[in-house]
Structures are given as structure tokens and as C-alpha cells.
Amino acid sequence: MDFTLKIWRQKNSGEKGKFVNYKVGNVSSDSSFLEMLDVLNEELILKNEEPVAFDHDCREGICGCCSLYINGRPHGPDELITVCQLHMRKFKDGDSIVIEPWRARPFPVIKDLIVDRTAFDKILMEGGFVSVNTGNAPDAHAVPVPKQNADLAFDAAACIGCGACVAACKNASAMLFVSAKVSQFALLPQGRVEAKERVRAMVAKMDELGFGSCSNTGACEAECPKGISLTNIARINREFIKAGSA
């Protein structure tokens, strides 16, 4: 398969970027999207051009590194996957593909398609944990947890922190990400103890970092590679009201 790629190139955070067009040929339809970019990069290196920088690591859809905005969609034209799981068979031979980095004020571009997502870690630092030291724990069966809650907590905890929700949201809101973490802990007895402080601190940090607010459009849920549900956003709102009225 042959493709025309229109890729955002930017030397570093200080310099202006621009789109550059590339042609890439002889791509197997069984290749992943990132393997297609590998092929392009190999060609660029041999032509004495600088390869395209993009984040990637596990290449099995779980580390949350890869973060490309492909033809107007975070992680490209397939459901419930990350870019590294996107395969070229999802495109047509001869397609032209526009590849951009995540765009959000709290996610500045570092180079080409790589953005700085440490904002997410800063939010988690404010309360994305249970305050338990190593060795403090009672027996794991000391507190039974209703299966339904455990399952919902897992569904929320499945978030890989890739930032597709922010990239997809017209407001660059981080509500789906933050709500997933808040929900995970709100649903478990171990997390309830600090629920109020947690939601207050994490929301305050999220606002301070310059993410937009939630308009309940649902774009985040539609583009989330792990299918994190909007019900988590309802839950964080609820938790926030509870915390605010206390």
C-alpha cells in the first residue's frame, strides 16, 4: 500500500512547527500504523533527513505512550484502540493521512508529534492515591467489596492516561481522565476515607493547569481507547457536590 502523509514537524517547544508532506510506499496492510512510520523513518535517515519523533513504547495498547491525532481523530479511525494497535488495513491504498500531535495548552509540543503530558501526573499527585504506607495493610479479605463496585472501579482504573480524551474534547478538558481516577477510589471502601479531599484537590489542580471544562459532549468517551464511560464524569460531579457541601 502507498500513502501520502502530512505530518506536523516542530524542532522543539521553542520553535514554530509546520506540516510536511511525505510519501511512503510498499506498506503491508498487516503493519501497524507505527510500523508504517518506522518504515518512513528508516527512509528519512538514509536520505539524511531527520526522522519523525513520536511517543511509543509497549506497542500493545497499554502503556499509553502513543498519542497521534490521525485524520481528525485521536488514535485514528478505529474504535477502542491506541495508535500502536491501529493497522494499515483500516486505510485505503493511496489515502492521504494527516498526523498531528495532541493539541491542548497543558500539553505543549516537545518535538514533532511528542507532547508533554506531565500535567496528568501533576493531577494524580494531588490525590490519585490511597494514603497507605507499605506494611499498613490489613488482610485483603478484611473488607469485602461488592462485585459490582469492584467491577466498576476496574473499568475506571483501566484508563491508560494517554490523553486522547483531552485531545478529542473541543474544550481540551481532562474530566474523563480525572473522573476515572476519582471514580476508581470513590467506588472502593479503601478510597472512600479520603474521597472529599481527593476530588477537591484533583479538580483544583486540573483547573490550575489550564484544562477546559466539561460540556458533556461525549467526544472523550467516543475516542477513549479503553472505553472509559461518561458515567464517571457524572460520578465526579456528584463527588464534587458532596465534597463541596461538607
Partner: peptide
């Protein structure tokens, strides 16, 4: 919300 995305996307997809 507008400030939160200072650079907009070149290509968007009707979600």
C-alpha cells in the same frame, strides 16, 4: 475552553 486549546487541529473529523 477556547484558551485551553491555543492551536487548533488542521483536520477534524465529525465526531
Amino acid at each position: 475552553n477556547w484558551i485551553a486549546r491555543p492551536v487548533s487541529y488542521a483536520k477534524t473529523h465529525p465526531s
